[in-house]
Write a protein that binds this DNA or RNA. Structure first.
Lengths: 117, 117
DNA sequence: TCCAATGGTACCCTTTTCGACACTATGAGC
DNA sequence: GCTCATAGTGTCGAAAAGGGTACCATTGGA
């Protein structure tokens, strides 16, 4: 059944590439990680940066990123509810990866031009 | 319907990350690109480097990579059939990305340790 | 004629991914 | 009581992704 997230990748050279990809390849994950690189964001702040994401999808992807140890989710005891998301220490080590992806996309993909974050 | 490959990514900053990911996130693509970084490989050579890939899946992913302009497929007029695969010029620009993914996987994913290619 | 090597293709199935839509919970303020 | 803001959750369906299995085509050599 496909490339299950967290498959063991003890097969052959190069599998580390697939292992890393399995953590970041869900829709919206890459761009979420990119935005979190610049600091803490609340749920709705992330959501407003992604024009077409549904609440449901965003919640799910954030939960997976958290489960994989790439981001941290801080719940505040307040009303209205407040939840902050940050890159974890581990997530921060992904910055070269995310930046490499962005640099390549900016240079090579039509319509992927980026404006100021 | 999911993140269709080649979606226009003219929405917001950071979309370039997703755009790039959409090209390389099919199962086996990352590791195929990694192996092609070291030079031309024939279909069966690639296949033997990936212990659990089916012929069908490998063919499909190679065809997609070719369609996206990341690899070149050279057919030789001979029997038995011979088809060589290489990174395209465009594909070569992805090397920093693939290497970043591999470096991160090697350092951070259990069981993703790599041996000599 | 049969077998081998190579690189496929056809048909079908299962699972996963993603999104639409509706609904929920909390306290604060009016 | 009602509305608001925030961050969700539940249910379902469509499409995509991935894979299994069988079969195919070609020439060369035994």
């Amino acid at each position: 059944m496909g490339r299950t997230r967290h498959d063991r990748f003890d097969c052959s050279p190069g599998c580390a590439v697939e292992a890393t990809l399995s953590l970041i390849d869900g829709k919206w994950k890459g761009v979420v990680l990119y935005h979190l690189m610049s600091g803490t964001l609340r749920f709705n702040e992330i959501r407003r940066k992604l024009p077409n994401v549904t609440q449901r999808m965003l919640t799910n992807q954030l939960r997976e990123l958290e489960a994989d140890g790439l981001i941290t989710r801080t719940v505040f005891a307040q009303v209205p509810p407040r939840v902050d998301y940050d890159l974890s220490e581990r997530g921060r080590t992904l910055e070269p990866v995310i930046l490499a992806l962005k640099v390549w996309g900016d240079a090579n993909m039509p319509s992927a031009g980026s404006a100021a974050a």
